[in-house]
Nucleic acid binder design. Structure first.
Lengths: 164, 164
DNA sequence: GGATAGTTTGATACTATATAACATAAAGAG
DNA sequence: CTCTTTATGTTATATAGTATCAAACTATCC
């Protein structure tokens, strides 16, 4: 575990996890990052990121849409998907492929490999963000002449709280 | 690479890859496996597996449906999805999560970890099937108290033929 | 060989997920 | 202020997957 970036591991599964503190930190970070990158952290974008962090479970696009509809007159699928695309591009959220859902990134602004632990019981998701894993995958692929640009790594199983 | 199961690596990206030979072998294997497991390798199931192997690219469910419609009167989405579920359960195909598509498994009948190399240029997919990777993922998750049941590992990048 | 229990497929309807295309509005640069 | 770019609104459509019940098939047992 020597070289793993432990700072990134969000202790999502822990009893004491203060999700609302994470939320505030993530929103502040997103705002700051947008400022330094010259991107616009608009009300819509902020609001969608808030809604994602409001739950500590993966959120689906159409759940977000439904919530937005209570707040904005003309919210439609593109409203949500475009905003999700932005948040993904900027690294503020991650997409959980195996659930078609989205979670807030616990460490926006620091590039890190993304590996997700998905509890099949409570459906919470934690980030592993392990450099050793990323490196091994890269090496193994390279040995086949394959140059890796991006990786989807999602481990389904049982989290410690659910008796993993 | 010591402990990796090299037999499983399909050389999908190689020039000389004889896809139709793979196809025939896979179909014969599926038939034999069904016999030993007491499962029914019905005409529909065989046909869908054939259609998947007919292309050497990942195939989408609705492409299969369209082709089936030319052959069977009443083919409908459930026809395809139920058959895909069967083929997945028996390990004859793999689902590519990042493409919502399906590929034939190059080594049905032998349990193996599934890691996919997805070329973003030609869209071909190869199996890595590396035990070291599976083991490392398991270890890293276990260190967080997480018990892994299944893994989605898909590496997107450029294959050797496309200049990776 | 016929009853029957289990499995597979047919058929209809529906839900869920995501994108295309074009119009309008808002923000930043000169 | 006006021009350009970026963001959002709006309508329509494409793609992906599931629920439900009925009919047909298969294997088995008597």
């Amino acid at each position: 575990m020597a070289s793993s970036d432990q700072a990134v591991v969000t202790e999502f599964f822990a009893e004491g996890h203060d999700h609302s503190a994470c939320r505030e930190a993530a929103l502040a970070a997103a705002e700051a990052i947008c400022r330094t990158r010259g991107m616009r952290f608009t009300r819509l974008r902020r609001r969608v990121l808030e809604l994602i962090w409001d739950r500590d479970y993966p959120v689906k696009a159409y759940e977000l849409l439904e919530q937005l509809r209570g707040e904005r007159s003309g919210a439609a699928p593109p409203t949500v998907y475009r905003t999700l695309d932005f948040l993904l591009r900027e690294g503020f959220i991650h997409r959980v492929e195996s659930l078609n859902a989205y979670i807030g990134c616990g460490d926006p602004g620091h590039a890190h490999p993304v590996q997700l632990l998905v509890c099949r019981h409570c459906y919470k998701v934690a980030e592993l963000a392990d450099d050793d894993v990323a490196r091994l995958l890269q090496q193994k692929a390279y040995a086949r002449g394959f140059a890796v640009d991006a990786a989807v790594v999602e481990l389904e199983g049982v989290c410690p709280r659910c008796g993993g």
